[in-house]
Amino acid sequence: MKKAASEKKTASAKTASSPKKAASTKQAASGKGAAPGKGAVSAKKTASAKKTASAKKAASKTSAAQKASKAAAVKKAPAAKKVAVAPKKATARLKGTAPAKAVVHPPGDESPTALVRRARRINRELAEVFPYAHPELDFENPFQLVVATVLSAQTTDLRVNQTTPSLFAKYPTPEDLAAANPEEVEEILRPCGFFRAKTKSVIGLSKALVEDFGGEVPGRLEDLVKLPGVGRKTAFVVLGNAFGRPGITVDTHFQRLVRRWRWTGETDPDKIEAAIGALFPKSDWTDLSHHVIWHGRRICHARKPACGACPIAPLCPAYGEGETDPEKAKKLLKYEKGGFPGQRLKPPQAYLDAGGTPAPPLGAG
């Protein structure tokens, strides 16, 4: 009996332990409820490595695309325009004048102080090249000068100088010209062009001189501009050269050059006059006008400036607009024929003695 009871207990114990083993076997198979082993950690590392590799691959593709787009943009961008640079010294500097010391091309944001210095240096250079710059109209008194200046509109000074001798021989005073027969004056002035309008102006200003100023040319700007045919430009020519009173003559050459040199961007003559006057002392105004006008007539032409023969090339921001080859540029230089003063100016070399110093003007002394 005891033996049978013992066998029953042993059987029940085995029966009770068998479900636990089965459950344990299921959990091991499913992986749930068991602590992670080496296999699970390895699987996680593999997944992470795959993700990192794919991310790097995507990044490299993006970087390659960006580089390709930049390369395409560089290829599409137009090539930069080659800028002509003036030589450090003028290539065809006229004998007897000091060469420009350095290239001083102004930057786009040139300060007012730098502009003043550059402008004054250009004037000094031109003063050395054209030491005898003067009004190129022939005159003996203020009356002849004001008449000649009025006649010079839309024609050359040479043509006016060929015409005025016969005019002043027949009508030497304002009283004579005021009482002249218009048809006779027109015939004399015909070679100057616009001779009818000019006849009306010179006879009208002569009458105004007789009636309002006692036959004398006034020495004040406000009085001169009241005369028929006389504007600020003509008035400053008369004031500066007949009365020794400083003035800036803003003719077509002057306007063109001061804009080309970037002294001002103004286009109105009165505004140009004010802008340039602020750059120079008043005592320089008259000579400055002569220097600029002479340079514009002889070297810095409107269509084909002789850049390669220009004495101020290192100071000019417009260098390269004209011919830069020295030999070709020399052929563009224009010097009037004749004597000095009162006629046409010869090349500056004609006024330099053997030692390279300015010789006296022809006819002087």
Rank of each mutant, 00 (worst) to 15 (best):
Q66H: 11
V103F: 08
A64W: 00
T46P: 05
L126W: 03
P106E: 10
K56V: 01
T46Q: 07
F130H: 03
A68F: 02
R118V: 03
K82L: 12
K101Y: 05
P99H: 04
Y132W: 05
K67F: 01
F130Y: 15
K81W: 05
A73C: 04
E110S: 06
D109L: 05
A65T: 12
P78E: 12
G96I: 08
K81R: 15
A58M: 01
A90G: 10
A65H: 02
A71V: 06
A73T: 11
R93C: 14
I122G: 01
K70V: 15
H105P: 00
S69Q: 14
K44A: 09
A73L: 08
S48V: 12
K101T: 12
A90T: 03
A49V: 03
K67L: 06
G96M: 07
Y132K: 07
H105R: 14
E110H: 04
Q66W: 06
K56D: 00
A80I: 12
A84Y: 08
S69N: 10
A49S: 05
A79R: 14
R124T: 11
P99L: 02
A65P: 02
K89C: 08
R121E: 15
V129D: 08
V83P: 02
L115N: 03
A71Q: 04
A90D: 06
L115M: 04
P107C: 00
E125C: 13
R93E: 13
A102P: 03
K76R: 15
A71C: 01
A59F: 03
S69K: 15
V129K: 09
K56S: 02
A86L: 06
A84D: 11
V83A: 13
